[in-house]
Design a protein around this nucleic acid. Structure first.
Lengths: 219, 219
DNA sequence: TTGAGTGCTGAACAAACGTTTAGTATTGTT
DNA sequence: AACAATACTAAACGTTTGTTCAGCACTCAA
């Protein structure tokens, strides 16, 4: 009596062809240990195939990385361009709710996706740089739309703002191994992730400081 | 007619013993490419010694990493516990000025230090985890002190706040290679770094949104 | 039945890696 | 001067790595 999504996933993995299993296992291992931290023999063992099959299907380890990167991009597009692109146009309440829905809808794949994303950003390949740029442009696009609506204070530094946004957006992504050590569980677990989103939105909206005088002083 | 600091540094490197040169070159290379991305032969070549000398002085590559980590910690303590520990107790104007001074005083060593720091956080060793924890405790200490003074709004999420701070603090650290690609130069260059600090402080203090009604509506 | 194509295996190979070792040069002590 | 300890070199060693290759099992069309 497994949940259908889990069962479907499991069957998928076990009944997959060698080529598909190699790709799936490679993506998991690359995400966990990084490209250089994984050997072709590791991948072959996990996918339960011979080492030679990797080169047979993908030409080389580098070819396998390319295939993994391509698959990642399809996920990236599905996750980011499907739903989260225009949250800033919504009312605050709707935004929180729609983000929660979005998080719930992709909860299964999210952790593995994030691990791969993390590695991609950290390994400093040209492809990783292009991915960063693409993500950066998404963030800057959101900011530009907010700006066009006159919602952003004019004194805010427009050069650093998109980067600060990205730091907040990707922080959980990049530091999750350490977050797990401090909080005892991953920041990607649904409740923590949603709560983080709220904390993030609150910081952006109001800063963190008490504005005592305004509240009490003026009358 | 070189600047004295540069000359002193250069002489230092060239007149150092083999052991010291190995350590210095190893730290530079580890910071650039990561521990696994550097071979003992790379280090030996850069330090202009034989490969065997590394094992003679440090026992193993792992021993060299330990020595490098230890040296890094002495830098870390000098940088962080010397000056930047209690900026939050100062008036805003003083804070900006003191940060600028601090940045200028360590500008020479800062980029290499940050590269090593970056790698240390990304390589997921137990030592890196301990370093993260230590940094995290510094940040949380600052927040606690602000909180004790009643300066932080009660609604702010106390669980995520230290992490959000860290994301902002370490963002430039972790993403500098990409920042360099987008801005054309490193975010650690003194003016950009200082400007980032201001943008960061402004975000924390006020958020980014226009508060039109308060400004114009009330009269 | 034949033959070509595909999925796949496991042994073997060359290169790169960290490490060891035998030996030389230098320094310091008595 | 003589000895010992230290600094250092260069070749060699064993392991791990990505890759290659000859061959096996199976499918499907002719």
């Amino acid at each position: 009596m497994k949940r259908p999504t889990q069962k479907a996933k499991l069957e998928l993995v076990e009944s997959q062809s060698g080529k598909d299993r190699i790709l799936a296992c490679a993506m998991a291992l690359f995400g966990e240990r990084g490209f250089d931290g994984v050997t072709t023999r590791d991948i072959a063992a996990k996918a339960d195939v011979s080492v030679g099959l990797i080169n047979h299907h993908f030409g080389s380890k580098e070819g396998l990385r390319q295939a993994a990167d391509e698959y990642f991009i399809t996920q990236f597009e599905r996750f980011y361009e499907g739903e989260a692109g225009h949250v800033e146009d919504q009312a605050p309440g709707d935004m929180v709710r729609s983000v929660d829905q979005w998080v719930a809808s992709i909860a299964d794949e999210w952790p593995a996706f994030c691990r791969y994303f993390r590695r991609a950003l950290l390994e400093e390949t040209p492809w990783g740089a292009a991915l960063f740029k693409r993500y950066f442009d998404l963030v800057r696009g959101s900011i530009d739309r907010l700006d066009a609506q006159g919602k952003i204070r004019p004194e805010v530094d427009r050069l650093w703002l998109p980067f600060l946004f990205m730091f907040l957006e990707t922080g959980t992504l990049l530091m999750d191994p350490y977050i797990k050590q401090i909080l005892g569980r991953s920041g990607f677990e649904a409740d923590l992730w949603g709560r983080r989103y709220r904390a993030y939105g609150d910081l952006i909206a109001q800063g963190i400081f008490q504005r005592g005088p305004i509240k009490e002083g003026i009358r």
